[in-house]
Design a protein around this nucleic acid. Structure first.
Lengths: 339, 339
DNA sequence: ATAATGTCTTTTATCGGGAAAAAACATTTT
DNA sequence: AAAATGTTTTTTCCCGATAAAAGACATTAT
């Protein structure tokens, strides 16, 4: 209807179209057509991922537990458990007869399914989409074309549509009714809006945390996290890249104290942004993480002191440096990066 | 995988399955198969809705403007405009020859497409879903079945899935990977979490609003809204039900002053809840709206005064009564409704 | 009688296809 | 040449179909 925005399709920079895994379905001897693209309706990544995790159980025991127990352990249905057991028997890993599941040999590296085949379609689409977004050349106002994205990634349009709908809550894209999506861009404005909410939410959560009763289980969780921080601090030179995972767990614990689903859910936005931001921007990663670990330790100490003013101060300080880190990595216009 | 929650499917209370409109496509003489359910892939509600709005233009003029202009006016593409013009000619409403589009007669009531046929699928699904949710019997922990919902509403599963994904950001449902959705319920906890965020966001937005420069266009918008409030206040007895629409416009104007997409977007959650809540709970609607209009007028006056302390106080007062109204309508457990 | 296994049914995830709507391109009119 | 109309192509929206995965039911073993 209107063509105010430049019609610049969001294209891949380095065009290695990730091919969807097309390996034959091994269990039950079924085959899936592939390059032909016909009839392939659902990949069996749930099975493959659970199978790989199941293999690791074989190292530890001489025989496997019951089917329902395995289901709980692997987080899948009994149907999938049985498919896994069937393959383990087929490849001579176990002897399976009703209740008895005896381990015959240790798994070899080639028993595992390749990592790429264990990803969900949503993960594949997200990665592919974010790569394009961050690879540069993805400017605000660009149109996003479902069909083109689907073709380039090699998936159906439905999956892309569903991904974009889910992704839209991150505030980076917006839908035009009966028409295309518009990229709003990973801009300085975005980062500022994001951090504004983050700071509001985290200050409130931190205060709620400090006010939690002595017997709340979160204090034990906090102790464990403190330990992990101390250990990481000691070996920071070698393990600095492990920080981002710890960072997320720490902040999620704090946010959960708010007991507010909107605050807790909002951390998904932050986590997503930080996840890709960390991957993208490795400059001074070690120094940044070293500082952050120390800030976390001060933060934890403040929480344990239950001194609300102290918590507030420490939290503000940490959020300020987090914001600074994020903003530094988003050059916009010709403004100098530092004040 | 696990069956901890009661398997109580979310069923309709009054089972009048809204049948999707199956009227023949009138333009171009095409027909759509229907009860058979075959091949019907997309309804032409965009065309029908735009056509109805187009009919109202005929009252005012002796001839219609150019196709692109009509497109802008009706918010549709030229393709749809031409389909509309074709039908208007077919039914003798206009004489259409290239640039000349002469109005021959005024539209009659039966020229309009029925209202139901102008709704989008998303609207149909949302209404149907919310009716069930609010009709009672929809308790927290219930499972939501995509296939069943789709069958009962009479639409495809894809549309239901997409709706549920979009709807999930309201915090009322949650997805179990590779499995069903879980209803979290329209509970007192939900209302409290919602209002907590709302209050945080609105206080901040109101402060930002009051700090806006003299020459910002929002002051004119505010003046217009003040007028509308005064007029409504004068005729409140007859027009009290028009308040909710005004309410939404007023609060959206305020939230927009935050210049934060997350704050602006969050008002969608509030608006959705209030929309259905107002429909559901008509108790003391007149009195409530009368109070709210007066609170809005005080709020507007405070904003115009630019006295931040006064804005804060008035805003808090209004939010408090809004929260009270919402909570009153959600009886939970056996607690008394009023303190 | 409880809990496992064996079997069958239902639901979810995903694709391809097709009509509606948008958008792009080509041609005419002012 | 600018802006309209006429024509063709592309994209969005939505459905039905199908394999994977979950779930329910039936049977057997402890």
């Amino acid at each position: 209807m209107e063509a105010l925005q430049p019609k610049l399709a969001l294209r891949m920079m380095f065009s290695e179209a990730i091919p969807i895994s097309c390996a034959r379905t091994l269990h039950a001897g079924r085959k899936r057509r592939c390059a032909t693209g016909q009839g392939m309706s659902k990949s069996n990544n749930v099975y493959k991922d659970a199978y790989n995790r199941g293999l690791r159980l074989l190292d530890e025991t001489k025989s496997l537990p019951s089917e329902p127990e395995l289901g709980t352990l692997l987080g899948v249905s009994r149907t999938t458990v049985r498919t896994i057991l069937a393959r383990m028997e087929e490849t001579g890993l176990i002897d399976w007869n009703k209740r008895s599941k005896t381990v015959l040999r240790e798994p070899r590296p080639d028993d595992f399914f390749p990592e790429e085949e264990t990803d969900t379609l949503a993960e594949i689409i997200e990665r592919s989409f974010m790569r394009r977004l961050l690879a540069g050349g993805a400017e605000a106002g660009m149109q996003i074309n479902e069909l083109e994205l689907a073709r380039e990634i090699g998936v159906g349009t439905t999956s892309v549509r569903e991904f974009l709908i889910r992704f839209s809550r991150f505030g980076l894209i917006e839908k035009r009714r009966n028409s295309h999506w518009v990229l709003k861009g990973f801009t300085r404005a975005f980062a500022l809006e994001l951090t504004e909410i983050r700071e509001m939410f985290e200050l409130r959560s931190a205060a709620a945390f400090a006010a939690l009763p002595e017997d709340s289980p979160v204090w034990a969780d906090l102790d464990r996290l403190e330990d992990e921080h101390r250990r990481l601090a000691r070996e920071i030179a070698a393990r600095f890249s492990e920080f981002s995972e710890l960072d997320e767990r720490f902040h999620r614990l704090i946010h959960r104290a708010s007991h507010n689903r909107f605050i807790v859910d909002f951390y998904d936005v932050i986590a997503m942004i930080f996840h890709y931001h960390y991957q993208w921007n490795k400059a001074q990663e070690r120094e940044r993480n070293e500082v952050a670990v120390q800030e976390h330790l001060a933060y934890i100490a403040a929480l344990k002191s239950r001194d609300l003013a102290r918590v507030d101060a420490v939290c503000r300080k940490h959020l300020k440096s987090a914001r600074h880190t994020l903003l530094t990595s988003i050059p916009e216009g010709r403004q100098p990066l530092r004040a």
